[in-house]
Computed example of a mutant assay.
Amino acid sequence: MKRALITGITGQDGSYLADLLLDKGYEVHGIVRRSSTFNTRRLDHIYRDPHDAGRRLILHYGDVSDASRLVTLLARVRPDEVYHLAAQSHVRVSFDEPENTGDITGMGTTRLLEAIRMSAMDIRYYQASSSEMFGAAPPPQNERTTFHPRSPYGAAKVYSYWMTRNYREAYGMFTVNGILFNHESPRRGETFVTRKIARAAARIKAGFEKHVFLGNLDAVRDWGYAPEYVEGMWRMMQLDQPDDYVLATGIGSTVREFAEHCFSHVGLDWREHVRYDDVYLRPAEVDTLVGDAGKAREAFGWTARTSVYRLAQIMVDAELARLGSDSRETWSANPFTNARTPVEHSGRVLPR
C-alpha cells in the first residue's frame, strides 16, 4: 500500500486528492492546523464511506510554519509521496497580508523541501504552483512563459516554484511543479469569486438575497473542474522523470460570462442582480490568464473535460441542493466513485 502525505488536505484540492488516492488504494495522511472550530468538513464523507476508507485516512496536527513538526511527521508517516497544497491562497488577501503570505506560501515550501531532504527517504514531492505566477505575461501561458507575478501570492508562488526546481537540480530529488490554472468546484471556499457567484445565484433564486457585489467583471480566467486537476497532479507524480507541467482548459472566460452562466441556469438575468464594488479590486490587476496544457497532454495524456458552462451548472446545482437540504446536513460526493453520502455540519471528525 502506497502512503501519501497531503498538506492543505482540508481545502478544495486536498479533499478531492484524498478521495482520488483512497480510491487508488493509498493510505492517506493529512496535516491539519489546530483550530477552535472543526475545519474538516470537506473530509467528513470519507469517514462514512461504505468501503471504510476512513480507516486509511489519518489526520495529524501541524503547520508549514513549524519546521521541526514537519521533520517529526515525515519520520512518523514515512510517505512515498508528498503533495504540498497548503498556502495562504487568496490573491486579494495577499495584498493585505503580504508578510504572512510570503511566510506560509513561500517559506513553507522551503521548510517542507528541507525536511524531506534531511529525512534521506525516497519521497516524491508535488508543489502546487499557480497560474498567478504568470500575472501580466501575455496569453496563452505555458511552461516556457516568463513569470510576471502581480500579487504577493503570485510572487510567493514563484519563489516556491524555483525552490522546488533547485532541490531537484541540486539534490536529485523527485520534485514536480504543477502549474494549475483556475479550477473550481462546489467545495471551493465561499470567498472565491466562482463560488460567490454560484452561491448568490442560488440564494437569489430562492428569495434569500437580491444582489451580489463583485469587482472586475472583465478579468479573463481559464476555469476548469477541480477533480480533473487533482488527477493531473497524481499522474505527473507517477512519471519516470520529474518535470514541471501546466494544467489548463485553454479557454478563457470573463467573470461577467461566468455570472451569466450561473444566473441563466436558474432562469435569471445576471444584470439585474450583479452590482459593482471597487473594494474587491486588487492594487495590481491580472487581466488575462489562459493556459496551454499541451506538454501535459503529450507526457501523460491529461486533458480538461468539463466546460466552464457545465462547471457553472455543477456549482449552482450544488448550492441549490444545500439550500434544499435539512439544516443539519448537506451532501458531499466523491467524484471518483460517484458515492453520495450525508455529512453532518457539526463535524465529528478529529485528527487521530
Rank of each mutant, 00 (worst) to 15 (best):
L217V: 14
P186W: 00
A53F: 15
G135Q: 05
D269P: 06
R168C: 06
R78N: 12
T72H: 13
R144Y: 07
W302R: 01
D317H: 00
P186L: 07
D122E: 11
G54C: 07
E319N: 03
V274D: 01
T10Y: 00
A304V: 13
E298P: 04
L20Q: 09
D96N: 10
H60P: 03
T7N: 14
P335C: 05
S327N: 14
H51Q: 14
L70E: 04
M1W: 09
R55L: 08
Q238P: 02
E27K: 15
R144C: 08
F192C: 01
E190W: 09
Y171Q: 00
I179M: 12
H273A: 05
G154L: 04
R188G: 02
V286S: 04
A53S: 13
P138K: 04
R256D: 09
L311M: 07
A333D: 14
F95G: 01
L59W: 08
E132P: 04
Y167W: 08
A136R: 15
I123N: 01
P79A: 02
M315W: 04
H60T: 02
Y153F: 07
S185F: 11
A333T: 12
R297S: 12
T72N: 13
L43K: 08
M163D: 03
Y225H: 08
A4H: 03
T110P: 02
V91A: 08
N177A: 14
I179H: 05
L214D: 04
S35P: 03
Y61N: 06
F38I: 14
E169Y: 05
C262W: 00
R282K: 05
Y276N: 10
D218Q: 12
H273P: 00
R48A: 12
D277M: 05
V158N: 02
Q313N: 08
D287R: 14
E184C: 13
A201C: 03
V93M: 15
R76S: 15
T37W: 15
V64S: 00
E114Q: 12
V274E: 01
R275G: 04
T175R: 00
K157I: 02
F181P: 15
S36M: 14
G108A: 03
Y171F: 13
V193D: 12
D244K: 10
G207D: 04
K2M: 11
R297C: 11
S129P: 12
G135C: 07
R310G: 05
T145H: 03
S36I: 14
G178R: 02
D49S: 11
K24M: 08
K205E: 13
K157P: 01
R78D: 13
R328K: 14
Y153I: 08
I314G: 05
D23H: 11
E231M: 09
I251F: 14
